[in-house]
Simulated assay, not measured.
Amino acid sequence: MALLSSRRLTSDSALAQSSRPGRPRSRGLNRVSAMTTTLRSVAVCLFEEHLSRCIVEAAAQGSRETSQKIEEASGSIARLVRS
């Protein structure tokens, strides 16, 4: 997560610099697009980790938590698709 924070700070400062008066707006838009793509990639990685750990573990145990975990995953997929 420290690497993500470092990249975010770098991206934030680059975005702030690109939005200064006199700078082409396309640079800022390109950076926003890049940040959005990066955030979506992180979301997918977090979701895959959740699937591989929590849901698979709950399913293997056959617990009642399995359906709850699947509902959580479905909600996460819906939010990810809407964004």
Rank of each mutant, 00 (worst) to 15 (best):
A78G: 02
E71P: 01
L4P: 02
V81N: 08
E65T: 14
S19R: 15
C54Y: 03
T37D: 14
F47D: 08
R31Y: 01
R53C: 06
G22I: 08
M1I: 05
R27G: 01
R82C: 06
R27K: 08
A59W: 02
S6T: 13
G22D: 01
R82P: 03
S76P: 01
A43V: 10
G75H: 05
R20K: 14
S74E: 12
G22E: 10
P21S: 09
Q17L: 12
A34V: 00
S67Q: 04
R82I: 05
R64M: 07
S76E: 13
S41I: 04
A14C: 09
E57W: 08
S52V: 08
S83M: 06
L39P: 01
E71Q: 08
R64A: 13
T10H: 04
V32C: 01
C45D: 15
S67M: 04
E49M: 11
L3F: 10
A59P: 04
A73G: 01
A14R: 09
S63N: 04
E48S: 13
R64E: 09
S41C: 07
T36Q: 12
S19V: 12
A2D: 14
R64I: 07
S52Q: 15
H50T: 05
G28F: 00
T10L: 07
I77T: 07
A73E: 11
D12S: 08
M1R: 04
T38G: 08
L9S: 14
R53M: 08
E48K: 13
E57D: 15
I70F: 11
R82F: 06
P24E: 00
L3S: 11
L29G: 03
T38R: 10
G62A: 09
A43M: 13
S74I: 05
R23C: 01
S41F: 06
V44A: 05
T10D: 09
T38A: 14
S6K: 12
L29V: 04
A2N: 10
G62Q: 06
T66F: 13
Q68E: 11
M1F: 05
C54M: 08
A78R: 14
I70P: 02
A16P: 02
M35K: 03
L4K: 08
S19G: 10
S19W: 05
T37L: 15
